[in-house]
Design a protein around this nucleic acid. Structure first.
Length: 858
RNA sequence: GCCGGCGUGGCGAAAUGGCAGACGCAACGGACUUAAAAUCCGUUUUCGCGAAAGCGAAGUGCGGGUUCGAGUCCCGCCGCCGGCACCA
């Protein structure tokens, strides 16, 4: 291909237009307050998930979503919107640091190189980003505000009364450190003794380090945490008003994991402390035949009998040495040990044994459960293995006609009617839950409760290449730095190797870590999520050095929250961020909103996930499979416009689909046909204006096709159905190609429609036509978006289908206005139909104007 | 195991409950050419009948259902892909 003559000179005009756009700052979007800002226009904020600039450069997956948003951005501009369409770099992260460990090259250098490469690649595709708003999460001017937001979190708390984040100064309790949204806790992390470092979850596979395959263990370490759990309810409720795919909302809902149930207090048979369990099935309390504590439960050491002491201690040790993943493998057989202690069931005084087992998790509920083996699969598996009693307390409502008796050893987890449950007998599950909860509350033995699976966010990393915390330690206590001391810059290090101890790499910066005679800096850094949590805010006001985003800019670009809760109008990115990034962003946004810094309660109104692009072999693209497609190669051979167009023509945006070079050639040929609508080659092979282009009126048919195309392209862009929009433009081009003379006015409209998709060729042809015809002033991309004339689309005559019993038996051309009766009369007069209904009993006739007539005959 | 999404020609895919397969790829035939490429025109769901225009039947993963009419709606399966995974 590359050796062949190009079908149109894209390699000449694509760079030419890119340079012109850049020189003219064609995509710069002024902010409110700037001289060229037009407040009369509505705003549209269309955002891509910004990339991590990896060393391997862009792959064809990135530009899929980017092309979609670029078309939207260009289209909205042509529709008269102020469009915010920015791009930046999520540039902190592991690969640059690991590269630094290997080569000694500073991550900042690697990052700068990669950013340069990525940016050049993106610019070659002709995206209409406002590069004057480019942000980089590693830029000290950006880090400063990331740290500033952390300070807001540190200096605020969740007021359970108002259910909002408030300044910590409104907290009246003893110790503010107990309630800060950013707090310190001992948390287990992935510690790899061989590598002498802490690993992120994604660096650990099957309990081994990704690098080297060394064993990884859980080890408690002091960590910074963010109190996202306080916002669980609001994060859940907020989803309803967002235009997100239902599947993504569901993913977040499941992640938050709300459940309703009750705390129930149990007493120990031999006295001592009481303990509390959480259950979603208080109605099965009479069926609790044993208790289970998590191995880490504080009561374990206390209650264990002397006979069981050794067994219990062994078990606790074994469990502690296991990785989180090993431990949470639900498919493995249950394990556990009897503590020797007994608890008293508050409802019936029964004495039931207390076990410990690792299937009960510390950190959820109370870390203790009442086990009801007849009505819970996990309890059932455990009871069966250890021969514990199983008492049935819920009767499954028999399905009609089902006489089969479930075996005595089975369990049933659904709703039914309470049995063997004293005061609850005969009550359906829902009522039994209510009654027993009330009963417990009246006696102060328990209370209704809501629990969430969501955990607080472990926010610190033992890494170099991340944002330093604006925190210092003095006399064993942490303290926030003053805003005026921001940004806290990373120290220059030359040795990025892990310390081999639990100390983060920043501990090597001996000078840096000393804040004063008595105070030292926090040595952890923030996770990569931190910078990506709020970049969409910075884009609104990227150069502001007095605040992270001005009130005015935020209010304009995000809206005032009155029409919709979300600020960004359209956010496009991969599903891999469905939970973490999108949940963390919502959390930060919510806090900043509560504190009065942001007008809207939610960050992203409409979310669309683009599908993954597979290799030509239908497999996931990967270097090892050798099926990776490099955008640069495609652009070299077919041009940026063809690349863009193919990315969109492959199929629906959200769908997973395989790459095909033949498909690229298809859209390339389409663009060549567009080119030849306007241009032809002379004897020497030079391109010149085609003789077929003329200043004439389009034919009726051409006009109809053109307006049908305006209508369909417009509708399809707004639903992101780019593949069908392109198909319609192909139809239009095919019709114009076959015409002897091509009306310049029709070409004009076509180029305007095409310009968001293939901006370079549209601009080039627009310019060339302008040399000879009127109506081509300015740039194609600055034209008003055309409107279709519906009256041109209505045909006077339509072909309808004649059916007998739903099967097509003939066709008929009728007036578009023909009503039901006229249709039926015309249909009966049709020869074929007449022949087939002759002598038959007509049961029913369905006539749908403009569509069909269907005879139902006996 | 649980929760989502998707199953339509040789391939990527289109189809407000109303002519299944638009558009593109591939293949085949023709025009142009000394020739090839490129380009342009045409054919192409499958099966049967026909020399042919055409005619008939079947057809959207499988099995049922609702409806005058189902790729589309409902019920039950199967397969593939993705997410979560002992959350009491």
């Amino acid at each position: 291909m590359s050796s062949q003559r190009k079908q149109f000179p894209f390699s000449d005009f694509e760079p030419k237009w890119q340079q012109r756009w850049e020189a003219a700052a064609a995509f710069r979007t002024p902010n409110p307050g700037e001289p060229d800002f037009d407040p009369s226009k509505p705003k549209y904020y269309v955002l891509d998930m910004f990339p991590y600039p990896s060393g391997s450069g862009l792959h064809v997956g990135h530009p899929e979503g980017y092309t979609a948003t670029d078309i939207l951005a260009r289209w909205r501009r042509m529709c008269g919107y102020n469009v915010l369409h920015p791009m930046g770099w999520d540039a902190f992260g592991l690969p640059a640091e690991q590269y630094a460990v290997k080569t000694g090259q500073h991550p900042a250098v690697t990052t700068a190189n990669n950013v340069k490469h990525f940016k050049a690649q993106l610019q070659r595709i002709g995206f209409s980003y406002d590069w004057s708003r480019e942000v980089n999460t590693t830029d000290p001017n950006y880090v400063r505000w990331t740290q500033w937001i952390f300070l807001q979190l540190y200096n605020s708390w969740f007021n359970p009364t108002t259910k909002r984040a408030e300044s910590i100064s409104t907290y009246t309790g003893d110790n503010p450190d107990d309630v800060r949204l950013a707090y310190v806790a001992e948390m287990p992390v992935n510690w790899c003794p061989e590598l002498g470092t802490v690993l992120a979850n994604e660096e650990v596979t099957d309990g081994k380090s990704e690098v080297g395959g060394f064993p990884v263990e859980r080890r408690p370490m002091r960590q910074w945490m963010l109190r996202i759990t306080a916002f669980a309810e609001r994060l859940l409720e907020g989803l309803d008003a967002l235009d997100w795919p239902e599947s993504i909302k569901l993913l977040q809902k499941n992640w938050i994991g709300r459940s309703e149930g009750a705390f129930v207090d149990f007493t120990l048979k031999d006295g001592g402390d009481n303990f509390t369990v959480y259950t979603t099935r208080p109605d099965t309390l009479f069926g609790a035949t044993y208790m289970v504590l998590a191995p880490e439960h504080p009561l374990v050491a206390q209650i264990t009998s002397t006979e069981q002491k050794e067994a219990v201690e062994n078990y606790v040790r074994t469990v502690a040495s296991k990785s989180e993943r090993d431990r949470q493998d639900a498919s493995k057989e249950k394990t556990g040990v009897f503590t020797g202690a007994y608890a008293i069931n508050p409802v019936n005084g029964a004495s039931i044994p207390i076990w410990i087992a690792d299937y009960v998790l510390t950190g959820y509920g109370t870390g203790a459960i009442m086990a009801v083996p007849a009505h819970d699969d996990r309890d059932h598996a455990f009871a069966t293995k250890f021969n514990l009693p199983i008492v049935k307390v819920v009767q499954e409502s028999p399905s009609p006609g089902d006489a089969s008796v479930p075996p005595a050893t089975s369990y049933f987890t659904g709703d039914g009617v309470a049995i063997n449950s004293g005061i609850l007998d005969g009550l359906p599950t829902a009522e039994a839950k209510r009654k027993i909860t009330l009963w417990l509350e009246e006696r102060s033995l328990g209370r209704a409760a809501v629990q969430y699976k969501l955990r607080d966010w472990l926010f610190s990393r033992q890494r170099y290449w991340g944002e330093p915390f604006p925190i210092i330690w003095e006399n064993g206590r942490h303290r926030a730095l003053d805003e005026s001391e921001l940004p806290v810059r990373l120290p220059e290090l030359h040795d990025f190797k892990p310390t081999g101890t639990a100390e983060p790499p920043l501990s090597k910066a001996k000078e840096w870590l000393r804040h004063s005679e008595t105070a030292v800096r926090e040595l952890n850094t923030m996770p990569q999520w931190a910078g990506s949590c709020w970049y969409y805010l910075r884009f609104c006001d990227p150069h502001n050095d007095t605040c992270f985003v001005s009130e005015e800019a935020a209010r304009y670009w995000l809206g005032d929250g009155s029409n919709q809760p979300g600020g960004v109008d359209l956010y496009v990115g991969g599903t891999e961020h469905a939970v973490l990034h999108l949940l963390y962003s919502r959390f930060w946004h919510m806090v900043l909103h509560d504190l009065g810094f942001l007008p809207t309660p939610e960050p992203f109104q409409r979310l669309v996930n683009q599908g993954i692009i597979l290799g030509a072999d239908g497999q996931k693209m990967s270097k090892s499979r050798g099926n990776v497609v490099n955008p640069d190669d495609v652009i070299n051979d077919y041009g940026a416009d063809a690349f863009r167009l193919y990315e969109m023509f492959m199929g629906p945006l959200e769908q997973m689909k395989p790459w095909s070079m033949k498909g690229v050639e298809g859209v390339y040929r389409f663009l060549a046909r567009v080119w030849r609508l306007v241009m032809q080659e002379d004897q020497e092979g030079r391109w010149q204006m085609s003789d077929a282009v003329a200043d004439i009126e389009p034919t009726a048919s051409q006009l109809r096709t053109l307006h049908a195309t305006i209508k369909k392209v417009t509708a399809d862009i707004s639903t992101l159905s780019f593949n069908t929009a392109i198909a319609q433009m192909m139809v239009c081009v095919n019709e114009l190609t076959s015409a002897e003379k091509r009306p310049a006015s029709a070409l004009r409209t076509l180029l305007v429609l095409l310009s968001p998709f293939a901006p370079h060729i549209a601009e080039e042809l627009w310019e060339r036509l302008g040399e000879k015809f009127s109506g081509f002033g300015g740039l194609a991309q600055s034209q008003d978006w055309p409107r279709h004339d519906e009256s041109l689309l209505v045909e006077n005559e339509v072909e309808i289908v004649l059916q007998i019993n739903g099967k097509v038996r003939g066709r008929l051309v009728v007036s578009k206005d023909a009503d039901r009766e006229q249709l039926e009369t015309a249909a009966r007069a049709d020869e074929k139909i007449a022949a087939q209904i002759a002598g038959k009993k007509i049961i029913k006739v369905i006539a749908v104007p403009g569509k069909l007539v269907n005879f139902v005959i006996g």
